[in-house]
Design a protein around this nucleic acid. Structure first.
Length: 896
RNA sequence: GGGCGGUUAGCUCAGUUGGCUAGAGCGUCACGUUGACAUCGUGGAGGCCAGAGGUUCAAAUCCUCUACCGCCCACCA
């Protein structure tokens, strides 16, 4: 074995081994309990970034832990078609050829997309393999593969048939140059300089009204041209200033239309004049108000943002030209009161930077309230738990205010909405309600004839579904849902059995950003389509940030590439460093240096193992896997490490059960390095009894098991070298350690700890005194029993403290120091510097005196004695006694 | 504007039902090659637990307020 651990070859070798032997694969197994995680499917366009590394390491840790614990552990992998992102990639490709998607048409464009997916779609999957992800790759799914598409259609059809899907009008982001709808993410907000115009709307007094009203009311707007489509004015219901509006008619300037006056809480009385013009077809907020108050929607623009016939004399003008013309006309009529400079934030097309025009258009929606009802209930009742628990509140708060979900998208890459229209029926019902279902056929396949009129003039809906409409089915569609249409003994029938075995899944691991987009919707989908929650627990981890707290993103140029870390330091180092740094739900602040801790630890494991393996080399005998201590004599150190080991196993297991991965990581790190290596391994160099060889191998074996979920590669590599009886060909499937049945009394552990304390004191003392040579110190135990303990363990105590220890000789003029159970003496002539030690002792006395004062005050307080539990009072007294004794002892220290 | 968090050592964070002298890693300083490891070992320094009130025998921990920082959602006529 080399003196340094080299991950590169090791990692590749073992991953290949695992994959070839199908160790990642899981199937229905009646002898085992299932454990299942579905991966948050990464985008096919994605390349592995640090967020993926964090997210997937957590999942792999849990999956590997449960697998070792004997569960049938399934990690379901897959990728997401990521509608807009993927379409953009291919559109950009086309643009290089000077083409637009419209030039080649929908069919050819989709061919290009599939070709792209075939070539690049598995990039991220290969990167996940480098990370060590133990997914069942045979089950790899894609949100647009054949079976999955069927699931999406079925989901749509079922919701439609239940009346939970409807078509209605909605305001979308529209780029008048590209003539396409844009998602919010594609229309980033930019602040631009603009004006706030104050326009006077004339008032006409109702004949019946007695009170006097002004001639006009002033309204502020940044987009005066939209006034052509105004259908109302709105004021706050609490705003007493405008109560008179009830008694008059508001006349829309230029157009002459009479406007409704409505009251709505959304209107901010303090802002501008406190009166808002409502243009339902050209502003998102106005649209919402209009729906609430049943206002008319007047669309005044064409696709290219020129004014249409609703705009009277302005017809044909571009929106900005129209703005000037409208302002000019208002000014002429004396209706433009003033204008003020104003910063406007408005969406801009991510491609051509054209200002977005909010546009009214027909979209498909899911009614969410009925779905949310049960999804709220299961979380309230604790059937689904969030980790950390505070996310429960966030979830419930959102769910209780849920809005209908717009599921249609005007792009080509995605699941085309399974809706067909009969042209004849549509034409017949053209004038009926816009969201009526006449002429709409919802079907998995294109029908040949209209069921109502028999016409065969049928065409499919152009829009595709929002990507999340496929993702929300992920926990069951990946298993082959829907199963109903299949016979039970078919391939699909087996899939159903598997599904019933693994569903509901156990843990969902995700970042908080997609709690609403994805997690909440999966809960609703699970309950709606399966009648059962999709997962029992939701583990929400933090965001990956750079060292200064900025979100890691390509555009900021502050990313740390996980693949680079893997290449330089190994996947184990990456995984371990992330888990050590990511406190539960805490954001992770990373710099490249922070990954060194993992590399160093891997090297530590490597070298400790090297020592143990070399030590055991000449012993031919294979070690048994389990510990049999019958007839064996254990030293104090043996008992201590076994006792600590037991605690470790207990901690690791319960931390992992509670999804406290960071705590588990820390516990195993602390034990391995600072207990096993720093103490037991060192002691073992001086305690060469036969059982020691076995115990070293035994504990190493168990530590490798405990570490395996974190660092699968190095642990497998070393484990394969161990000369022990192995129950499986791979550490991946070796048993998770259980606590040992030990009878170790607390007194012995205490004796060990006091020797440990003695060693630390000797080291510090020696250093304080400026002694570098190996000299003789005299140690005087406080009682005979301690004397015996020291005698028995003298060789390693002396070795570890780097001093000779004599017990017979006490120097006449001596120095002594701070351990409770032992006094230490040294020949004064050896001392080079006493001052440092003196100072330290004095500081210690001072510190303890303050503490003593506090404890004495407590004990002289009658209410403390009366109210505090007896146990606490006793402990306080005991502590006071011990500390007082220590102070006395420190004070007795003589320097000459 | 609504909701949710955070503030503990120079930095990043533990501190789970209030009760042993508030811990760890990194960094820093000093010493050091002792039978695996300098990607190491050993020892040290470093904290009015953001501030102010309150509850309690007892508060880093519970409550209220203040200040600062952050996240999510909505909105900016």
């Amino acid at each position: 074995m080399e003196t340094r651990y080299n991950p590169t070859d090791t990692e590749e070798k073992w991953y290949k081994f695992w994959e070839e032997k199908s160790f990642f694969n899981a199937k229905k197994n009646p002898d085992k309990k299932p454990f299942c995680i579905v991966i948050p499917p990464p985008n096919v366009t994605g390349i592995l970034h640090m967020g993926h590394a964090l997210n997937n390491t957590i999942q792999d840790v849990l999956i590997r832990f449960k697998r070792m614990q004997g569960y049938e552990s399934l990690w379901m992998p897959g990728t997401d078609h990521a509608g807009i992102a993927t379409q953009n990639v291919v559109e950009r490709q086309l643009a290089k050829e000077g083409l637009k998607k419209e030039d080649i048409g929908r069919e050819k464009f989709l061919e290009r997309l599939w070709a792209w997916k075939e070539e690049y779609g598995s990039t991220i999957i290969n990167q996940l393999k480098k990370l060590g992800a133990s997914c069942d790759w045979q089950r790899l799914r894609f949100t647009m593969d054949e079976g999955y598409s069927l699931a999406v259609k079925q989901a749509f059809i079922r919701l439609f048939n239940k009346g939970l899907i409807y078509k209605g009008n909605y305001i979308i982001n529209w780029c008048p140059r590209c003539k396409t709808a844009l998602a919010d993410e594609e229309a980033p907000y930019k602040e631009i300089d603009g004006w706030l115009y104050y326009i006077r709307y004339p008032l006409k007094k109702n004949p019946s009204s007695e009170s006097s009203v002004p001639d006009y009311i002033t309204v502020a707007t940044t987009r005066p041209e939209t006034m052509l489509g105004d259908t109302a004015l709105a004021v706050n219901p609490k705003d007493v200033r405008y109560k008179f509006l009830k008694d008059c008619q508001v006349i829309l300037p230029i157009v002459g239309r009479v406007l409704k006056v409505i009251e709505d809480e959304l209107v901010e009385p303090e802002f501008c004049t406190g009166v808002v013009k409502v243009t339902p077809a050209h502003d998102k907020n106005d649209f919402l108000i209009a729906k609430k108050h049943n206002l008319d929607f007047i669309n005044i623009m064409n696709e290219d943002a020129t004014i249409n016939e609703q705009g009277l004399e302005f017809k044909g003008l571009d929106r900005f030209r129209a703005r000037e013309a409208v302002l000019k006309r208002l000014e002429e009529e004396g209706l433009l009161e003033k204008k003020e400079p104003y910063k406007i934030s408005a969406g801009h097309c991510y491609r051509c930077n054209t200002m977005i025009e909010p546009r009214l258009s027909a979209q498909w929606f899911v009614r969410m309230k009925p779905l949310a009802k049960q999804a709220i209930k299961v979380v309230e009742e604790g059937k689904i738990e969030f980790y950390p628990g505070r996310w429960k509140k966030v979830y419930l708060n959102w769910m209780e205010n849920i809005q209908d979900w717009c599921i249609s998208r005007q792009i080509w890459w995605g699941h085309r909405i399974p809706v067909y229209y009969c042209r004849e029926c549509r034409e017949k019902h053209q004038n009926s309600e816009s969201d009526s279902n006449s002429g709409i056929i919802v079907s998995e396949y294109q029908p040949s004839k209209c069921g109502v009129c028999g016409s065969s003039d049928i065409y499919q809906e152009e829009d595709v579904l929002d990507t999340w409409f496929s993702s929300w089915l992920w926990p069951f569609a990946t298993f082959g849902w829907p199963f109903e249409s299949q016979t039970p003994d078919s391939e699909i029938g087996k899939k159903k059995e598997e599904f019933e075995y693994f569903y509901p899944t156990d843990v969902l691991v995700t970042a908080s950003e997609i709690l609403f987009f994805w997690v909440a919707r999966m809960i609703m989908a699970g309950l709606e389509f399966i009648g059962e929650i999709p997962f029992k627990r939701v583990l929400i981890h933090g965001t990956v940030r750079d060292i200064r707290g900025k979100k890691m993103s390509k555009s900021l140029g502050n990313i740390i590439d996980p693949l680079e870390i893997i290449n330089e330091l190994g996947a184990d180092s990456l995984r371990f460093s992330l888990m050590l740094q990511a406190g539960s739900g805490q954001d992770v602040y990373l710099s490249k240096e922070k990954f060194l801790v993992g590399r160093n630890f891997a090297n530590k494991i490597w070298n400790a193992s090297r020592y143990i393996l070399e030590r055991a080399k000449d012993k031919e005998k294979e070690h048994p896997a389990e510990l049999n201590l019958e007839g064996k004599i254990l030293t104090l150190a043996d008992k201590w490490i076994l006792y600590e080991y037991n605690r470790l196993v207990e901690e690791c297991t319960s931390f992992l059960e509670e999804l406290r991965i960071h705590d588990y990581t820390q516990a195993v790190y602390e034990f391995f390095w600072h207990k096993f290596c720093d103490w037991y391994l060192e002691i073992s160099k001086k305690e060469s009894d036969e059982i020691k060889d076995f115990l070293l191998v035994f504990i190493l074996d168990k530590c490798l098991r405990l570490l395996h979920p974190l660092m699968p590669f190095i642990t497998e590599d070393i484990w394969q070298r161990l000369n022990i009886k192995k129950e499986t060909p791979t550490l991946m499937k070796a048993g998770w350690p259980k606590t040992l049945d030990l009878t170790i009394n607390k007194g012995e552990i205490k004796n060990f700890l006091s020797l440990k304390e003695l060693i630390i004191s000797l080291r510090a003392f020696k250093k304080d005194l400026g002694i570098k040579e190996k000299v003789s110190f005299s140690v005087k135990p406080k009682n005979d029993s301690l004397s015996k303990i020291l005698e028995e363990n003298l060789h390693w105590v002396s070795f570890l403290s780097r001093v000779e220890i004599s017990r017979e000789k006490t120097y006449p003029k001596v120095v002594s120091t701070a351990t409770i159970d032992y006094d230490i003496f040294v020949d004064k002539s050896l001392v080079k510097n006493l001052e440092l030690h003196q100072k330290r002792i004095e500081a210690k006395i001072e510190e303890l005196s303050v503490f003593i004062q506090g404890e004495e005050a407590k004990l002289s307080n009658p209410s403390f004695l009366r109210e505090a539990p007896q146990e606490v009072v006793e402990r306080t007294k005991q502590r006071l006694k011990e500390v007082s004794e220590e102070v006395e002892r420190l004070k007795r220290i003589k320097w000459s």
